[in-house]
Amino acid sequence: MNTRKGVATVITEAGEAQVALDLRSSKPDGNHTNWSGTLTIDDAEVWKAIANTSQVRIRTTDGRETEFIVPDGAGFPPAPGQPVVLHIESSDGAEL
């Protein structure tokens, strides 16, 4: 199991913004890597872009990118000073 924690860039049709990631990987079938964890957003515009789609693209600080789904939906927009934490998952075999 690998972990990824820190700053990343979320890429949406509204543009790019910094977010916080906290991810863990697993290989349930022994071959393909699945990532799951949380994405913390404090920008209402980024939240709106994610709320209008079921997928989000994330770029880590070393330049790796992959698609994630937001299985539980985006919830409510962030209030001032109160970021939103979203559950995200990826099963495309990407190595982050």
Rank of each mutant, 00 (worst) to 15 (best):
M1F: 05
R4K: 05
R4F: 10
K5H: 10
V7L: 11
A8W: 07
T9S: 11
V10D: 06
V10M: 05
I11R: 11
I11A: 00
E13M: 02
E13F: 09
E13K: 09
A14Y: 10
G15Q: 06
E16W: 01
A17Q: 08
A17W: 08
Q18P: 02
V19G: 06
A20K: 11
A20S: 15
L21D: 07
L21R: 10
D22F: 02
D22H: 13
L23Q: 04
L23P: 07
R24M: 04
R24T: 02
S25N: 07
S25G: 14
S25H: 09
S26L: 05
K27R: 11
K27D: 00
P28E: 00
P28H: 08
D29Q: 04
G30H: 13
H32G: 00
H32F: 07
T33Q: 09
T33N: 08
N34T: 15
N34L: 08
W35A: 01
S36G: 04
T38H: 11
L39F: 11
L39G: 05
L39T: 03
I41H: 08
E45D: 15
E45A: 11
V46H: 03
W47N: 01
K48N: 09
K48Q: 15
A49I: 01
A49D: 00
I50G: 05
A51K: 13
N52Q: 15
T53H: 12
S54I: 06
Q55I: 03
Q55P: 00
V56H: 06
V56L: 11
R57A: 11
I58P: 08
I58D: 10
R59K: 14
R59W: 01
T60P: 07
T61R: 14
T61H: 07
D62S: 15
G63R: 09
R64Y: 15
E65Q: 14
T66W: 13
T66A: 15
F68L: 09
F68W: 08
I69W: 09
I69P: 01
V70T: 12
V70G: 04
P71I: 06
D72A: 12
A74Y: 01
G75F: 08
G75N: 03
P77N: 06
P78I: 02
A79G: 03
P80W: 05
P80I: 07
G81E: 10
Q82E: 12
Q82S: 08
P83Y: 03
L86W: 10
L86N: 06
H87W: 11
H87T: 13
H87A: 10
I88D: 06
E89I: 12
E89Q: 12
S90R: 03
S91H: 15
D92Y: 02
D92Q: 05
D92M: 02
D92G: 12
G93E: 03
G93L: 01
E95A: 09
L96E: 10
